[in-house]
Simulated scan of single mutants.
Amino acid sequence: METISDYLAKIDNPEHRAQMEDVFNWTKEEFPDLKSKIAWNQPMFTDHDTFIIGFSIAKNNFAVSPEAVVVARFSEAIKTAGYTHTANLVRFPWDKPVNYDLLKDMIAFNITDKADCETFWRK
């Protein structure tokens, strides 16, 4: 699997596939400077070769992984949006509309916060 298109093609549920395609297209449109890639069998977006956000799918949701610092910072907003999270990821249920404002805020925070980061992950 080398591209996001390859990743999407492997999603069996057509509704889930369409929702993920919408999320990826929105991310590309909203943040055109980010580069998309597949790493660790997961689609992700990077900025100057540093990780910004990753995605994965599960039975009841897709998950967004922006790194633990971001999840902690946005914990209350995540709960207010009706989502659950762990230390490293936020669960976006398939049966709820995607809160793009929250997603935008998390991505924008990571881009700004990691502007001077010289490694893929935060140290």
Rank of each mutant, 00 (worst) to 15 (best):
T3I: 13
L8A: 12
A9M: 12
D12W: 02
P14V: 10
P14I: 10
P14R: 05
A18R: 07
M20A: 02
E21W: 00
N25V: 03
W26S: 00
W26I: 00
K28Q: 15
E29R: 08
E29V: 02
E30C: 06
L34N: 05
S36W: 12
S36Q: 13
K37R: 14
I38M: 11
I38V: 13
W40Q: 11
Q42D: 04
H48P: 03
D49Y: 02
T50I: 04
T50R: 13
G54M: 08
F55G: 05
S56G: 12
S56C: 08
I57G: 01
A58P: 04
P66G: 04
V69A: 13
A72C: 07
F74T: 09
F74V: 11
F74M: 09
S75W: 02
A81I: 10
T84L: 11
H85M: 08
H85R: 07
H85A: 10
L89N: 01
L89Q: 07
V90W: 01
W94P: 04
D95N: 14
D95M: 03
V98N: 01
N99T: 01
Y100M: 09
D101T: 07
L102P: 02
L103T: 03
M106Q: 00
A108L: 08
A108G: 03
I111H: 05
D113P: 04
E118P: 00
T119C: 10
F120V: 03
W121G: 03
R122Y: 14
K123A: 14
K123P: 11
